[in-house]
Design a protein around this nucleic acid. Structure first.
Length: 198
DNA sequence: CGAAAGATTATCT
DNA sequence: GATAATCTTTCGC
């Protein structure tokens, strides 16, 4: 619980990087969520980029602007939460204003508040705690209420973490019937990390 | 207002 | 691999 590590929230400047560069820069950063029950945090170890107009797999494909994708057209650095079946997913909006780009946080490595995460997930294996986009949001208490929240301010924010030694890249997961979009190598993860989903 | 689809997860074959 | 669970958004009538 009481780490000596003082998280330094990322600055707006960090979010001004091109989407694909930022997807890699986010690896190793610390994602923090503060709630009444306690604070949970984890290092981001897996991300996926979704670049609107040219990406058939993105909700914003063809510049489709709806109530749901609205935040993606806004300024970078905001949270785009989205309900999928029985789960919630967390994205970081990237790209310039009016460019519907975002980065999906697919997995994190638990850092603090691990007891609370176990309580929420009701499982007993550390490895399954946050090794997936829907798992980590449940473990950290992230939901639709966080839609549009700036990720450089409490209670939900991203801070500087560590520098990953090696980064791998490959095809995205969980999308199909989207033509060649599923072939784009826009998934990035920390090489060898056991919390990366598969 | 009703229906269908979806960037997932857990479980069974 | 295939499928059910189950919620919000979006689109059609």
């Amino acid at each position: 619980m009481n780490q000596n590590f003082l998280p330094k929230p990322l600055t707006r400047k960090f979010f001004q990087q091109p989407t694909l560069i930022m997807a890699k820069s986010l690896l190793g950063c610390l994602l923090i969520k503060e709630t009444e029950e306690g604070t949970t945090s984890g290092f981001i170890v897996e991300t996926e980029a979704y670049i609107g107009p040219e990406d058939r797999a993105a909700h914003s494909f063809g510049n489709r602007r709806t109530k749901r994708t609205e935040v993606m057209f806004g300024e970078a650095g905001y949270a785009y939460t989205y309900t999928m079946h029985t789960h919630c997913l967390l994205n970081v909006v990237s790209g310039e204003l009016d460019k519907p780009e975002a980065i999906l946080i697919r997995a994190v490595e638990p850092y603090s508040g691990i007891d609370l995460m176990f309580e929420r997930r009701k499982i007993d294996k550390l490895k399954n705690l946050t090794s997936g986009p829907g798992k980590l949001t449940k473990a950290m208490g992230i939901c639709m209420e966080d839609y549009g929240h700036p990720l450089f301010k409490q209670p939900l924010y991203i801070a500087e973490g560590y520098e990953p030694e090696t980064i791998s890249e490959g095809k995205r997961i969980g999308i199909h019937n989207t033509g060649e979009a599923k072939e784009y190598p826009w998934r990035f993860w920390v090489t060898g990390n056991q919390f990366v989903s598969k």
